[in-house]
Every structure is written in structure tokens, then in C-alpha cells.
Write a protein that binds this DNA or RNA. Structure first.
Lengths: 356, 356
DNA sequence: CTGTTAGCGCATTCAC
DNA sequence: GTGAATGCGCTAACAG
């Protein structure tokens, strides 16, 4: 390996000063064409990479970033995302980053508006958005774009906005995989049920829609679309749930595979389990939440599909920091998370933070 | 968040100079008891953490590290490990790390000895070991321990050595999961086959032994141990393989699930596929190698169990660097990788390098 | 538009 | 044993 050239070396080779090289590297304008060309030529020749550490040292400035997403509870999906964020903040604790959360209630548009308004009032250096309400999010993005405040999306994205990065999962693929998996682990002539919970107007249901398409897409692809039934349940109304779900299952005795299209699979699993019907039915749900993990352990859920929430959180702040510090734009604009298949037997090895 | 105290602040508060604080932080002796106590008190009070970046800047010293492991081919297991290593090297390219590979042939003890001898001759600052031959590895470790050269294990570990970290997979758990998975995706009264390849005295077979135990352990746990048959194949002898494998399958028509306990599952899959027997048999193997991926795509392998080789490589050099630079010892001594389940439908999202 | 320079926080001489 | 002084490579402010 040849010795890395330093800014001064570049400057000397191009016959200019370090200041000029710096200006070119960071595009802070005010450079003559001739200098620019000379420097860029040298830069390309020696393959210059500047030293992140020294850069960070010289750049003592602190940054304010605000993170707006649905309220995060430990052990649930957004809780994991927050863990990932905190993890990144710790890893970058050498750079002074002030981080504020602007949580909102994902079932309440008004709380979302309030949260979003508080963001622009802050005029932060960057913002991370976990979007739910499309119109409100678009509004926020427009205001951020006006002020040239960079932002990234996490968990899901809103089209037509100029993010510097977004981290999501291919929900259609999730549904498709769910179909394949459920089909694989059930007997030959099984029928299948999709359980959706009765909520409207929120992100979760957007994701659910895509997942459902994927699920049906799989069964279409093997010519078994007619084997799928759909029903719904309510997160809020446990007593009715039990009755409805058990009745549904009784009236469809050929259903051997159950898909919960969101992270609430444990509700169904618990009901089936409490009524000794869990044995006869294979069940797959989403996300490694505390409740779902419990069900994986007791066997009432067979598999969970997970989308690395902590990694999403981690990467979103990492990206923002790299952008702020070094104007790095070499990150892909849209990153799709892996879809992990978790079963009882590999559950214990999924600690998202081995990747310190 | 309170402002981070700097070395000068600590010094002032303890009534000493920055030099003294530094001596204490890095244990380079020659400090009076009184100063030491004063400083340590302040240190504890303010929860001092020094700035990784500035530290790295001041420390212009380069480190030599050598990595010894089986020869790595792109698209194979050790190839992925090397990719992870290179990735980390790139991420830390600001610190001048000279890295030398000492590859050896994992089927040839002598090549291993030669490689290991070259390491001590180098007297590097740290070494990363992908072990195969137990005795040789122990010998190497002893010599490294004598010279106080830190080392880490990757992929598998040798007991009784004083590593600073090791990264492996729980192979028993892999086998157990393999059993569960294969059992889940096959019809009720299927029988199962284990395929091992005929090699002896190397790492691969050590891992295979554990995997086999786990596989059998699963079927024992559900009282179905008698449904398992075992046979072997050779990587080197393709013609005989086809004949033997097809004969074996023909004489055991109830076998609906096939487990390859190593990354060579594609060999069996290809043979079954070429002879139109793939349809009737579910097959699971290990590792996302190029050949196995091809088989996942064409459906002749149903699932792969993977152990994040690239992440192992990445983490091993990250750990070494953190150790060398900051004497960080807060990494866990033994990290177990997640066991990913890869199917055709989630394959495309497994790019190990989203975790830049 | 460009060159010069001070200083970021820490590690490491080198005098005392 | 200890403190002061110097420099790591880069950024940003300032003087031209």
C-alpha cells in the first residue's frame, strides 16, 4: 500500500494551497476553473481519501438532529428502532450530537401535526422520519426541503421527496415469503387464513396491504389462490376476539396455516393456544416483539418474519452523521433490509447488536 | 448531555498536568501515588471517555496485523469472511493498518505449519486466526501468548487459549434448527438423510460433527430418531457420486428430506435435479456460496442455513483495531453469530454489507 | 478568488 | 516523577 497523500501533498502537486484543495473537496465554491482542474486531476491520480478522524477533530461543531416517529415502547417494533438509534449515538459519542425525539401517536393525526410543527421550529441540522400519515409527512418534507435540512426515512417511505437515504423492507416480498413459508410447513391440502386487525389510516395498515398482496401473490404463483380466507380481529376488544376467531376456525376446519400480517400475531396465537387449537395450526407473524417471542418459545407461533428494526435505526443515524460531517453521499438512496426468518431454534442468536 | 470533559480539564481538576493524566489513562507507569489517586478520583467523577478521533490522529503509528485462515475463494465461505475483513480495513483506512494474509490449505497440515511459522517471524501487533488443525493452532497460540501478541479466533475456536475475542456459530444449534426446518417442510411420515462428504481431519468435519449431533438431537427430542439415514459423498469424484446418491435414494423411497451438513449441498442438489428427483425431496444445506445460491434459485435447494461469514470477518478486525488503539476490552469474549434461514424469497435481501 | 494560520484533543518527546 | 512543548491532518476564519 502506498502512503496516503495528505491535503498538503495534493496542494503542492497541484501548485495551489491547502485551503483551495479543501474548498474543492467540500464544494464550498469560489474556486477558479484552472485551480479546480489542476486539483481534480491530482486528486484522481492519487486516489485521495481524507482522514475521517482528523476531519472530525477539526470539526468541533455540534449538530442537532431530531427524530420523529411513533411512540416507542421497549420490546416493540419502534422500541427496537430506538435502541438502534441510541446505539449509533453511543458509537459516535465523540462527535457532539444533540438528539431530540419528537414522538407522536400513530393513531392520532393531530399529535403527528404537533410533533412535525415542533421540528421546523427547532431548525435542526438533520431529521430522521418514521412516517405514518402521508399528507402530513409530505408537508414536513416540503418545509425541510425549503430550508435545505436533510432528512432520511425509516421503516417506510413517502414517494416524491428528496431524502438523502431511506431504510425500509420490501413488504410485498415479506408477504410472498410468508406465503411460501406457511405453504411449506403445512400439509398438502391445507387452507390458509389471513388475519388483519381492524385499524384504519395508519402506516401499519399500509404495510399490511403490501404484505397481503405478496401473500396472495405467492399462492397465485402456484395456482392456489382459492385456498385463502381472510378475517379480522381487534387489538382493543379481546373478548369478542376469542369468540370470533374460534368460530372462524371452527367453520373452516381445513385451515392449517394462519398468517398475521402485522406484529399482533400473539393475540391470535394466545387465543388458539388457550383453547388447545394451536397444535393443529401453523402460524407465522411479524416482528420480534416481546409477546411474539413468548409465543415462539411456547410453540404457538412457528415463525416470525423480521426486518431488523435496530439496524434501521442504527444506519439512519450513521448515514445522517456521515452526511453532516463529510457530505458523504456514497450511501445508497434506498436500502432494503434483509427479511429474517426466526424460529424457536435460532431465536437466541438474534441479538441485533453484535454489530457493534 | 453534559459537555465531555477533556484531558486538560481532568488535569486541572486534579491539580496535575495533562501528561500525567495521560500516563495514568494508559498505564505507562512512573506516576506518584498521590497524583494517581487524585486523577482517578476525578476520572470516576466525570465519567471520562477520551475522544477516539483525536486519539487516532495523534497516534500516527501503523499496526501490522496478520490473518491466517484457509485459502479464500470468492463466492465461498472463506471468501465471504475475507470480504468482511476488507470491508473493515476500508472503514478503518484512516488508521494505517498493514495487513498480511497467511493462507493455508485446509487439507494440508504442512501448509498450515508453514503459514503459522511465518506469522511469528513477522512479529505482528495482532493476529486473526481461522483455525483448522488443533495441535498446530495450539502451538501458534502458545508462541503468541509468550510474546504477548493478541489474537482472535474466527469461524471456530480452540479451547484453553487466551484470545481477546472469538466469533463462531453454535454448530449444534445449526444442526438442531436444520432438523426442525426439514421436519417442518416435509410430509408427515417422511424419512430423512444426512449427507456428509468424505474428508477427514479438518475444520469442516469438526463443524459437521456438531451439526450432526444437533440434527439427531432434534429428531430425538420428538422421538423420531429412527427415521434418519446417513450416507456420504465425495467432492472430488463426481461420477461415482451420481451413481451412489441415486442408488441410495432409490433404495430409500421414503426419504423426503435431505440434509447436507456442509456447504457442498449443491453437489447433491445438482445430481437430484439432473435426474428429476429434486421435486420429491426437500433439501437444506449450509452457507450462501455461489453454487448453493444457484440451487436455491432453481429450486433444487429449499433453504440454506448461514452464519454471517462477512460479519465475522468484519467484527474480528474491528475488535483487533479497538483493542490495539484503545485497549478496549469491553467486547464479549465469545460472540455467537445469528443463524440465518435463507430461502428463494428472502435471498435477494441478504447483502451482508448494508451494515457499513 | 487564494494563501496563511490558529487550533481541534490527544500522545509523545524532552527538559526540568 | 512531572509539566510544557510539539505535531498529527484537517477545517474555518481571515487577510490579502
Amino acid at each position: 500500500m502506498a502512503k496516503q497523500a495528505k491535503i498538503k501533498d495534493i496542494a503542492k502537486m497541484a501548485g495551489v494551497s491547502a485551503g483551495t484543495v479543501d474548498r474543492i473537496l467540500h464544494n464550498r465554491g469560489k474556486v477558479s476553473q484552472s485551480s479546480r482542474q489542476a486539483v481534480e486531476k491530482v486528486l484522481a491520480e492519487v486516489g485521495y481519501r481524507y482522514n475521517i478522524h482528523t476531519s472530525a477533530v477539526a470539526l468541533k461543531k455540534g449538530y442537532n438532529i431530531v427524530i420523529s416517529m411513533p411512540t416507542a415502547s421497549p420490546g416493540e417494533y419502534w422500541g427496537s428502532i430506538q435502541e438502534g438509534i441510541e446505539h449509533a449515538l453511543r458509537e459516535y459519542s465523540d462527535i457532539s450530537i444533540n438528539c431530540r425525539y419528537a414522538f407522536y401517536n400513530q393513531f392520532d393525526v393531530y399529535s403527528c401535526r404537533t410533533a412535525f410543527d415542533s421540528i421546523t421550529a427547532d431548525s435542526p441540522d438533520a431529521v430522521i422520519i418514521g412516517p405514518t400519515f402521508t399528507d402530513e409527512t409530505i408537508g414536513l418534507c416540503r418545509r425541510l426541503e425549503e430550508r435545505k435540512i436533510p432528512f432520511v426515512f425509516i421503516d417506510s417511505a413517502i414517494e416524491g421527496t428528496s431524502t438523502i437515504a431511506t431504510f425500509t423492507t420490501d413488504q410485498y416480498a415479506c408477504g410472498f415469503l410468508l406465503g411460501r413459508l406457511l405453504h411449506s410447513i403445512t400439509p398438502e391440502d391445507s387452507e390458509f387464513a389471513i388475519f388483519r386487525n381492524t385499524r384504519v389510516g395508519n402506516r401499519s395498515s399500509n404495510n399490511s396491504v403490501e404484505r397481503k398482496k405478496g401473500f396472495i401473490g405467492y399462492f397465485k404463483s402456484i395456482g392456489m389462490k382459492d385456498r385463502i380466507y381472510e378475517t379480522s380481529f381487534s387489538v382493543l376488544d379481546p373478548e369478542d376476539n376469542a369468540k370470533n376467531i374460534l368460530e372462524f376456525m371452527k367453520s373452516h376446519p381445513s385451515i392449517k396455516g394462519v398468517a398475521a400480517l402485522n406484529s399482533r400475531g400473539y393475540i391470535i396465537a394466545d387465543i388458539l393456544n388457550d383453547n388447545e387449537r394451536s397444535e393443529h395450526v401453523r402460524m407465522v407473524s411479524f416482528d420480534m416483539t416481546t409477546n411474539n417471542v413468548r409465543c415462539i418459545r411456547n410453540g404457538s407461533i412457528d415463525a416470525l418474519l423480521c426486518q431488523r428494526p435496530a439496524l434501521q435505526g442504527f444506519l439512519s443515524v450513521k448515514t445522517v452523521i456521515r452526511y453532516l460531517l463529510y457530505k458523504k453521499t456514497d450511501m445508497p438512496l434506498h436500502t432494503l433490509m434483509p427479511i429474517d426468518i426466526i424460529m424457536k431454534q435460532n431465536l437466541d442468536f438474534y441479538n441485533e447488536f453484535i454489530e457493534l
